[in-house]
């Protein structure tokens, strides 16, 4: 059983999602609309009126790709924490899975595949709303989706690995408060990273979100960014290293 095992895990997730998708449906549709409307258009009118520091780009067009990458991170982080603890400890569905021919790495990869599915749905909805509000054109809107999905996965993989080391959900609170929230605010989502003190700029560029935002924004604005290859490489590195670590840590946790 090589890749088949991961597909079984994905099937399991999709089967459950068919029953639970309604729970996240409203927020998936409504929150991009509200955020782009309030910050992008509402506050954006004040930014644009003040003579833009954003090289002639309207604030809504600047914000939309950043917010897309940032919400992909948040969806991925959520899907890689509480549900993983559920599988490992609360419902013990992972124990049930490894009692069959499935291996821990199938769980890790299958989970990532499911996160990818969720991200494709959420990012597509977001992009469509951004296009409808005039933040970008339809072609660029469509091209933003894979960039956002990759950004999310670059978080999902290492966070799954982190979750596999946790005994309860206390660590997740800390993760969201001290990693996810600050990253969402300071990774170039709302304002350019260049505004940060030099040392914080360096920190920001070490994390995946800054690269994800830059990549998505370059696609949305059509400004060729010479560093695009670097952004891609960083995101892929986080994804691959994270996935390998998650597989190894699931193995350590499940097969003792």
């Amino acid at each position: 059983m090589r890749t088949g095992g991961s597909i079984r895990i994905l099937e399991h997730h999709l089967l459950r999602y068919r029953r639970t998708w309604r729970g996240s449906a409203i927020t998936t549709f409504v929150s991009p609309l509200f955020f782009l409307g309030s910050i992008g258009i509402g506050l954006g009118s004040f930014v644009d009126a003040g003579g833009s520091a954003l090289a002639g780009v309207g604030y809504l067009a600047f914000l939309a790709p950043g917010l897309l990458a940032s919400s992909a991170m948040q969806t991925a982080a959520f899907e890689s924490t509480y549900p993983v603890m559920g599988g490992l400890r609360w419902d013990r569905t992972y124990q049930a899975a490894v009692a069959t021919p499935l291996l821990p790495r199938h769980i890790a990869i299958g989970n990532l595949a499911f996160v990818a599915v969720r991200l494709v749905i959420a990012a597509s909805v977001f992009s469509a709303i951004a296009v409808a509000l005039g933040a970008t054109d339809p072609l660029r809107g469509a091209l933003m989706v894979p960039a956002a999905v990759l950004t999310g996965l670059a978080f999902a993989a290492p966070i799954q690995a982190f979750s596999a080391t946790q005994r309860g959900d206390a660590g997740f609170t800390i993760l969201f408060r001290f990693v996810i929230t600050p990253l969402a605010l300071f990774s170039g989502t709302f304002f350019p990273i260049a505004e940060l003190p030099a040392i914080l700029q360096l920190v920001a560029w070490l994390t995946p979100l800054a690269h994800g935002v830059a990549l998505t924004r370059a696609i949305a604005l059509g400004t060729p960014d010479p560093a695009m290859a670097l952004h891609l490489a960083v995101l892929l590195a986080y994804l691959v290293v994270g996935a390998v670590a998650a597989a190894a840590l699931f193995r350590r946790r499940l097969i003792a």
Partner: peptide, 9 residues
Amino acid sequence: GMGALVGEI
């Protein structure tokens, strides 16, 4: 951060 873009309100 946003304040630098917005200025005064």
